[in-house]
Simulated scan of single mutants.
Amino acid sequence: MTSPEDQPDRPGTFITFEGIDGSGKSTQTRLLAEHLESLGHEVILTREPGGSVGAEEIRSLVLEGDPDRWSAETELLLFTAARRDHLERTIYPALDAGKVVICDRFADSTRMYQGLSRGDLREKVDKLHRLMIGTEPDLTILIDMDPAVGLARAKGRQTAEERFEDFGQELQFKMRHGFLDLAQQFKDRFRLIDGNRSVDDVAGDIRLAVTDYLA
């Protein structure tokens, strides 16, 4: 495998979606994929943690169970392992084939959940990212919304994957401010979308942002 620091330029386009829990990312990634496919693009829709067989196995470890099941440091290692497998098995092959990859969460979520919100680990997150991942998205869509509304939506899904939602509303508020700070830090690749609106209105703004970027 090619090492992260020697990654070649790839002909495809890598688009990620970020935001607090319940911000509507999964719905909007699907709608964007359908829109781009209607325009003739080859699209791979994927997610993190997950997106490959090995990464999906790790997903159940980090998203299920009690909130204190893992420390933030252990989570960082698990998420990085899942991301590396996801890159090797799914993302890089698709980008090499010239496809558009749309991913629900990527490294920015780790910068927030483990780097900011669950401890002061941002420096370690960035070092490990440079060492083992070495890839940033071409474009990141940040769906910003009221943390209380987002958490209520997320809890309303009633799935087994609620470990991070169980940390409560304080984490969601901290995450929201952290994501907004990230959008300023990486303003060239971030597009901020107001998620406090209808699904169609949000989808329309996302289509405009992505179409403008691809053009």
Rank of each mutant, 00 (worst) to 15 (best):
L139W: 11
A154D: 01
R122A: 05
F167G: 00
D66E: 15
S52C: 09
G40T: 09
D201H: 01
R111W: 07
V202Y: 07
W70K: 02
A209V: 12
A33V: 12
I193V: 14
A160R: 13
V202R: 07
T90R: 02
H129V: 13
R89N: 15
I44M: 06
A107S: 14
R191S: 06
A72N: 06
P147A: 11
A215Y: 10
A82D: 11
Q158D: 14
L208H: 08
E57I: 07
R207S: 03
G150W: 02
V100T: 15
V43N: 11
G54Y: 10
R59E: 00
A215W: 07
E18K: 00
V125W: 14
G51W: 04
A97Q: 10
G204W: 05
S71Q: 03
T29V: 14
L87C: 11
D6T: 15
Y92L: 11
T29Y: 02
E136H: 06
I20H: 10
R122Q: 03
D144T: 06
Y113V: 10
P8I: 00
Q172M: 05
D21V: 10
L36Q: 11
V53I: 11
R207L: 02
R30W: 07
L61N: 09
Q158S: 08
D194N: 13
L39T: 08
R118G: 10
D66A: 12
K124W: 02
D194P: 02
L131H: 10
F186C: 06
E75R: 00
R118Q: 14
I193Q: 10
I193P: 00
L95K: 13
R207H: 11
S117P: 00
L39D: 11
M145D: 03
R130P: 03
R191F: 02
T90H: 03
T90Q: 02
R118C: 07
D201Y: 01
L31D: 05
D205H: 05
G134D: 04
T211D: 15
D85Y: 02
G19P: 15
D68C: 09
T13E: 09
T74I: 15
D138P: 09
K127V: 08
E75V: 15
G50V: 09
T110Y: 08
D166I: 01
E162M: 02
H129Q: 07
Q172P: 06
A107T: 09
G195T: 12
Q158F: 13
I193D: 13
R130I: 00
R207W: 09
R191D: 00
L121D: 08
L32W: 07
T16G: 04
L182R: 14
A183D: 12
E73A: 12
S117M: 03
D200A: 14
R30H: 08
G22E: 04
G98L: 13
K174W: 04
A55C: 05
D188P: 02
D66Y: 01
D9C: 10
S71M: 10
S3L: 13
E170I: 03
M112C: 07
I58S: 11
F186T: 01
Q114P: 08
I44C: 04
D181G: 03
Q172K: 05
A148E: 15
E123K: 01
R83L: 07
F167E: 04
G204Q: 01
P67K: 04
E73N: 04
M112Q: 06
H35Q: 06
